[in-house]
Simulated scan of single mutants.
Amino acid sequence: MPAAPTPFRFFLLTFALAAPFWVLGFLVASPDRVPMDMPVSALMFVCPGLAATLLTWRSGGRAAVRALWARLLVPPRPVRWAWYAAAPLVSAGPLLVHALAHLAGVPVTAARTTLPTLLALVALYLVAAAAEEAGWTAYATDALCDRWGAAPAAVVIGVVTSAWHVVPWSQVHPPDWVAWQFLASVALRVLWTWVYANTGRSVPAVVACHLFVNLWGTLTPTFDSPAAHAATAAVTTAAAAAVLLLWDGRTLARPRRRAHRAAGTAPEGRP
């Protein structure tokens, strides 16, 4: 029987594995025409999956490692399939802000992308999202949800993942952009955990959310504008706050009113 996941050991190992990539990012300039001007240190996307694999192998051997990675391939049952439609929507802040700017008359340009380029971006972001979510979601999320509840787990993982990205972000973006991205990333993790909880704890659903936020960011040139990025962070944070306010924090799988009814109690502030 494999030992239970150890999220905080996983966090420390993921940061330690990323450190060489951060150093590489300072030493090697970002190549030209890289999506979203990503630095070389962005290659650290392999670290969460690697850390989760090492810890899982140590506690449960090959069988446990196979089970960990199998979660990225087979959605659990039962699955509420309608919730998979939320994957591109909860990550669509960049698209929404780009559209609103266009409607407001702000001069914005649309990215010109050929079909082969689009398919290559999808493949790249799918691999990166799967490697990260094998750690953040498949390994760490359930353990923290079971210990603290889904909402606190989402915020903790959101803060950790954002802190983990600060060095690469800072290598190619100004401090105000990094600050807004930090906030947006915490909010996105809340939204992704919400989708995760309502798809029967489906890791592929979170991988899809992760893929789409990178894809939308690449396809909207306003993603690099600090003002537009601030607006994106505000929209995403408002959506996450609505989820935390309206949904049961323990599970994020049902509205608060329904949860109170099931428990035989009234919502706070009501008799």
Rank of each mutant, 00 (worst) to 15 (best):
H165Y: 07
T117L: 07
L118P: 06
P174I: 03
D176L: 14
V155C: 07
A151L: 15
T161E: 08
D146L: 14
A163T: 13
D176E: 15
C145H: 11
E133N: 08
W180A: 10
Y139S: 11
A143W: 09
L115F: 12
L115Q: 06
V166K: 02
A154N: 06
L115M: 12
A120S: 15
F182E: 00
H173L: 12
H173F: 14
A131R: 06
A134P: 04
P175W: 15
L126N: 05
P174N: 13
E133I: 00
V172P: 01
H165F: 07
H173C: 02
P168M: 09
P168Q: 11
L119K: 07
V122A: 14
V155H: 05
V155N: 05
A151H: 08
V156C: 09
A179T: 11
Y125R: 09
D146N: 13
Q181W: 07
L121G: 01
P175T: 09
Q181I: 08
T161W: 15
A163P: 06
F182N: 00
T137H: 03
D142N: 14
R147G: 07
A120T: 12
L126A: 15
P175D: 01
P168R: 08
A163W: 04
T114H: 01
A120R: 12
V127M: 11
Y125I: 04
L118C: 05
E133H: 00
A151G: 12
D142E: 15
R147V: 04
V122L: 13
L126E: 03
L118G: 14
E133M: 01
E133G: 02
A129P: 06
E132Q: 14
A123G: 10
L115E: 05
G158D: 12
A134G: 06
A151W: 09
A128H: 08
P174H: 09
V178T: 14
W180I: 00
V178A: 14
A120C: 05
A163C: 15
A150F: 08
D142R: 15
D142C: 04
P175M: 10
G149W: 04
G149R: 02
A140F: 12
L115V: 15
A143I: 10
F182P: 00
D146E: 15
A163Y: 04
W164H: 09
A150C: 12
C145Y: 03
Y125K: 08
R147S: 13
L124C: 04
Y125G: 02
F182C: 00
W136M: 02
A154W: 03
A153W: 10
T141L: 15
G149F: 05
